[in-house]
Each structure stands twice: as structure tokens, then as C-alpha cells.
């Protein structure tokens, strides 16, 4: 075998091993790499009350209520499970019913008390007129059904 073929084989095998090792590490740490838990994860994992976590999902339609003292109450859903959230503070511009949201805070007796709420949007981009036309023709596939 020529020297450059030896080097090629060596580099190829080394990269393969490295890739496998990286894949195993990432798979093992999956729980720590995810940015948020869905309401279903939360129900399945039995997260202890008072532990700081992030909860992500869609803001349930018709669930947003502004109560006194700038407190916003809403429910986060993954269309299977729903969690009630209470949040005191300013909401991001993209926060609206039917849109994605990530709330950071603690679970207390079934209610998630958030101290930070971030908006999450999807990967669809289009002009408003196109969105209107799609909704009219019934071909709308976006998150918010309004």
C-alpha cells in the first residue's frame, strides 16, 4: 500500500470512529440537550415541583387571560397534554394564541409559574396577502387557525 493510501485509510477510519463516538455521546445526553420539555414530557417524566425547567408548546386557542397586576394566564399544549401557565411580565411581540412559546419557570401543584416567556415561530415565511388567500381557500396549514 502506498503511503498516501495508508494516510487516506487512517483519516477515513479516524473520522468514522470520531463520528460514532460523537453520535453516542449526543444520544446519551439527549435529555440535557433538548431546550424545553413538552407538556407530555412533563407528565411522563414526573418533574419534581419547584425544579427549574423550560416548557414549550403552542399557546392554546382562547386560553389567554390577562388578570390583575400584569399577570398573564394561558395554557400550553402539544395537542395531547395541556399545562396551565401563569406569567408576570412583558410578553414578546410574537406571543399570540396558536403560536409556539417557550416558558421558563417552576411547576407548582400543576400550575407552571413562568418568569420568562420566549416566542417560538415556525419555518414558514410568506407575505400577509398570501396567508390571507390560503386561509380563505381553506388550504391553510399553519399553526394558528384563525
Amino acid at each position: 500500500m502506498k503511503r498516501k493510501h495508508k494516510r487516506l485509510t487512517f483519516v477515513a477510519i479516524a473520522l468514522l470512529l470520531l463520528g460514532t463516538a460523537a453520535a453516542l455521546v449526543l444520544a446519551a445526553f439527549e435529555d440535557n440537550i433538548v431546550f424545553f420539555y413538552s407538556p407530555t414530557d412533563l407528565a411522563e417524566k414526573q418533574v419534581a415541583d419547584g425544579r427549574r425547567i423550560r416548557l414549550g408548546g403552542l399557546v392554546e386557542e382562547g386560553s389567554v387571560k390577562i388578570s390583575g397586576g400584569a399577570i398573564t394566564l394561558f395554557r400550553v399544549t402539544d395537542l395531547k397534554t395541556t399545562v396551565a401557565v401563569s406569567y408576570k411580565g412583558l410578553l414578546p411581540d410574537l406571543f399570540r394564541e396558536g403560536q409556539g412559546v417557550v416558558a421558563e419557570g417552576r411547576l407548582n401543584a400543576g400550575v407552571f409559574t413562568a418568569d420568562e416567556v420566549l416566542a417560538k415561530h415556525d419555518e414558514t415565511y410568506m407575505p400577509p396577502e398570501v396567508a390571507e388567500a390560503l386561509k380563505k381557500s381553506g388550504q391553510w396549514q399553519g399553526q394558528d387557525k384563525k
Binding site: F35, G56, V102, K120, H121, D122, E123, T124, Y125, M126
Partner: peptide
């Protein structure tokens, strides 16, 4: 795609074609 993230998934290079209007 592998983990849930705050960042949204890819808009242009995806299996079902670009999720972005032609004018953009």
C-alpha cells in the same frame, strides 16, 4: 431536527420543498 430548540427548523433545504414564498 434532532432536539427541540428555540430556533425553528430549516426553511429552504427541506424534504417537502421550501417553506418560504418565492418573492422572499
Amino acid at each position: 431536527d434532532w432536539w427541540n430548540t428555540l430556533h425553528q427548523p430549516a426553511s429552504v433545504v427541506k424534504m417537502t420543498g421550501p417553506a418560504i414564498h418565492a418573492s422572499m
